[in-house]
Structure formats: C-alpha cells, structure tokens
Simulated scan of single mutants.
Amino acid sequence: MEKRTARMTFLIDPIKKQIFEEICAQQDLTSSQVIRRLMRQYIVEHAGTRELPEWLTGTSVKSEDGAS
C-alpha cells in the first residue's frame, strides 16, 4: 500500500472541472479518488515490462479509495 503522498498540480478548463466534480459527487467519490484510480489503471496498462509493486497490480488488496 502507498505510504506517502505527493502533490500534483495541473491546469484544467473550469467547465470540465465542474462537470467532473459533479459526476464524482453523484457517485459518492472525491475527484482525488477518481484521479488516483485512473492513474493506477493507466500505469498498469502502459507499464510495459516495468516491474510494478503488488499493491498496485493486485486485485485482492483494497485501495485507499475503495477500488479493488
């Protein structure tokens, strides 16, 4: 499981941000939870031959945002 956090800042169109946050709220998720889930999925799909930690690829370990 991830032990530390790091801040990532990026710019996004305000309308996209508003729509994204509304959709997240409808699903009872924070935007951070969704972004972390998308990042994990992207890493796994595009890691190639890179060795990834088990907590990142394992399906039996529940993540901090409730996604398996």
Score class of each variant (00 low, 15 high):
residue 47 A to D: 06
residue 3 K to E: 11
residue 36 R to T: 08
residue 10 F to A: 11
residue 29 L to N: 06
residue 48 G to T: 09
residue 8 M to C: 12
residue 13 D to A: 05
residue 46 H to E: 10
residue 42 Y to A: 03
residue 67 A to T: 15
residue 68 S to F: 04
residue 47 A to T: 08
residue 24 C to N: 04
residue 64 E to F: 14
residue 43 I to T: 13
residue 11 L to K: 15
residue 37 R to F: 05
residue 63 S to K: 14
residue 49 T to R: 02
residue 68 S to Y: 12
residue 52 L to E: 10
residue 7 R to P: 07
residue 62 K to P: 10
residue 42 Y to C: 02
residue 68 S to K: 14
residue 56 L to R: 05
residue 43 I to G: 05
residue 32 S to E: 11
residue 8 M to T: 15
residue 63 S to V: 00
residue 56 L to V: 13
residue 31 S to L: 01
residue 42 Y to I: 00
residue 22 E to P: 02
residue 67 A to D: 14
residue 23 I to G: 00
residue 5 T to D: 12
residue 1 M to V: 14
residue 65 D to R: 05
residue 17 K to M: 04
residue 28 D to G: 02
residue 20 F to S: 01
residue 15 I to L: 05
residue 7 R to I: 07
residue 24 C to T: 08
residue 50 R to D: 05
residue 1 M to A: 13
residue 24 C to W: 01
residue 1 M to K: 08
residue 22 E to M: 04
residue 54 E to D: 12
residue 60 S to R: 07
residue 9 T to E: 13
residue 64 E to T: 13
residue 48 G to F: 09
residue 45 E to C: 00
residue 34 V to C: 04
residue 3 K to M: 10
residue 6 A to G: 11
residue 56 L to I: 06
residue 36 R to M: 02
residue 12 I to Q: 04
residue 37 R to Q: 12
residue 67 A to E: 12
residue 11 L to M: 14
residue 45 E to M: 01
residue 58 G to W: 08
residue 47 A to F: 01
residue 16 K to M: 07
residue 58 G to Y: 09
residue 38 L to A: 14
residue 53 P to D: 09
residue 53 P to A: 03
residue 52 L to F: 11
residue 29 L to P: 13
residue 9 T to R: 13
residue 50 R to S: 07
residue 34 V to D: 06
residue 49 T to M: 02
residue 12 I to Y: 01
residue 11 L to T: 15
residue 55 W to F: 15
residue 32 S to R: 02
residue 53 P to E: 08
residue 11 L to P: 11
residue 53 P to K: 03
residue 35 I to S: 12
residue 64 E to I: 11
residue 68 S to E: 12
residue 40 R to T: 03
residue 44 V to S: 09
residue 54 E to M: 01
residue 44 V to A: 06
residue 3 K to R: 12
residue 46 H to Y: 04
residue 41 Q to L: 03
residue 26 Q to M: 06
residue 56 L to E: 12
residue 16 K to W: 00
residue 37 R to P: 04
residue 21 E to K: 01
residue 31 S to W: 01
residue 5 T to G: 10
residue 55 W to M: 02
residue 14 P to H: 01
residue 26 Q to E: 13
residue 38 L to W: 11
residue 10 F to V: 10
residue 43 I to F: 06
residue 15 I to K: 05
residue 66 G to M: 01
residue 30 T to C: 03
residue 40 R to P: 06
residue 35 I to C: 05
residue 35 I to E: 07
residue 63 S to R: 11
residue 29 L to T: 11
residue 59 T to K: 14
residue 12 I to V: 15
residue 29 L to K: 15
residue 6 A to H: 14
residue 61 V to Q: 08
residue 46 H to G: 00
residue 13 D to Q: 05
residue 17 K to T: 04
residue 65 D to T: 12
residue 58 G to I: 00
residue 45 E to I: 00
residue 3 K to S: 10
residue 50 R to C: 02
residue 56 L to P: 09
residue 16 K to F: 01
residue 19 I to D: 06
residue 20 F to V: 01
residue 30 T to H: 00
residue 62 K to G: 03
residue 6 A to M: 12
residue 34 V to P: 09
residue 32 S to A: 13
residue 6 A to I: 15
residue 34 V to L: 02
residue 64 E to G: 15
residue 42 Y to N: 09
residue 43 I to L: 11
residue 33 Q to I: 06
residue 63 S to F: 13
residue 30 T to W: 00
residue 35 I to R: 06
residue 41 Q to C: 02
residue 19 I to Y: 02
residue 60 S to H: 15
residue 15 I to P: 01
residue 12 I to S: 05
residue 68 S to C: 04
residue 51 E to W: 02
residue 58 G to P: 03
residue 2 E to M: 07
